[in-house]
Design a protein around this nucleic acid. Sequence first.
DNA 1: CTTGACGTAGAACACCTGTTCGCCTAATAT
DNA 2: ATATTAGGCGAACAGGTGTTCTACGTCAAG
Lengths: 216, 216
Amino acid sequence: MANTPTGSLTDSQQRIMDFINRYVSMNDVPPTIREIQHGAGISSTSMVSYHLKALERANLLNRRERSSRGVMVRDPERVNLRSVLNVPVVGRIVASEPVPMPDADAMRDSENSVQVARSLVNGDEDLYALEVKGNSMIDALISDGDIVVMKRMTEVQNGDLAAVFLTDRNEATLKRVYHEGRRLRLKPENPTMQPFYVDARHVQIQGKVVCVLRKV
Amino acid sequence: MANTPTGSLTDSQQRIMDFINRYVSMNDVPPTIREIQHGAGISSTSMVSYHLKALERANLLNRRERSSRGVMVRDPERVNLRSVLNVPVVGRIVASEPVPMPDADAMRDSENSVQVARSLVNGDEDLYALEVKGNSMIDALISDGDIVVMKRMTEVQNGDLAAVFLTDRNEATLKRVYHEGRRLRLKPENPTMQPFYVDARHVQIQGKVVCVLRKV
DNA sequence: CTTGACGTAGAACACCTGTTCGCCTAATAT
DNA sequence: ATATTAGGCGAACAGGTGTTCTACGTCAAG
């Protein structure tokens, strides 16, 4: 066998990884299959494809299928360095409807997204955004056109500002949530308004508000 | 002519640049010609090629000829830096005081600044930010702790949301401003509240609100 | 009007590119 | 000994991809 395992990588796989890293650092774009073939000294494109699949299984690479230059080294540090997050706007908040949740399609849609400075959303990753329509969120100090950046979660801690859907009223709102036994206290952001109480069974937590953006 | 020059870029060229930047920030690789075509709403690949040549001449792009995904924004570092603006937080809004204006010292101070995605503040450059203390801005739908990003200016257009200082009351607030003869109509952002009128001589416009950020 | 520079549009071309298929070799397991 | 698995190879295919060519339209200057 011609393999010299490094970790669990064969010799060819190691050469491919090295070449991709070298290529990316020189060219800022990933190489094509045939560039890998020649650069890493692989005999055929099918062999490159073969090794790439193995490296993908080993979680060392990400690939965009059927896309040129679709191989990317998995480099979480680099992603972390990125200063701007693209947050998909997956829908709208309307008081009489549940808050939309992100799905795969919406995530892929590059048209509707807001860019948020990473420093605004400390480390949170899986975010989505909602556009507020109308003035039904006025007691959350949120007006028509505002963008609410949310983190998907079904449970929140005391004092979190969350999107809650009140099943008995068929209404979604943004409130600060406090657990009080079997009830929840929902407190409007507007301090001039009074909190009210609901049975925990009639409430669905749909996400936590991470930040609010208002373009003027 | 369908062009609306922005700087020295035509409308199409601007859309292409925006799309490429968006695409790169989301996908880590540059788009193909046809992805640009559809993403930027260009009618044909030849048109994309045509515009790309122009953008290359304008030194905004680098291209690898005859190579897939061979278009790269010039000086990625700079573009990367520019995707986030550092806006200095120069002070606080307190209803009983004039809104602070940025000075050289404050601008140098890198400690107190917020990062704002450039796409949030379309092109504006000389911005400063204020932190809202207390709930005096409740009628502007702004609560304690919010960050208001401002653009310094002394005159605003009808409907702009501006920081105004009422000299006769010795009070600063954020209101939408409408010129009505010698008076100004000041309209709270909260639609449930009534506008009121002041003599233009008793008002100092201190800046225009560009966006509002609320970390939760 | 003519001309020339610019912008637009569609199609075609030639090459690039990821993928797959069939066949091979060698080592290991049954 | 046979089957199985992993690694390897070349060729071909289908669609992606950058490029170029032709034709058309607009507008301002000569």
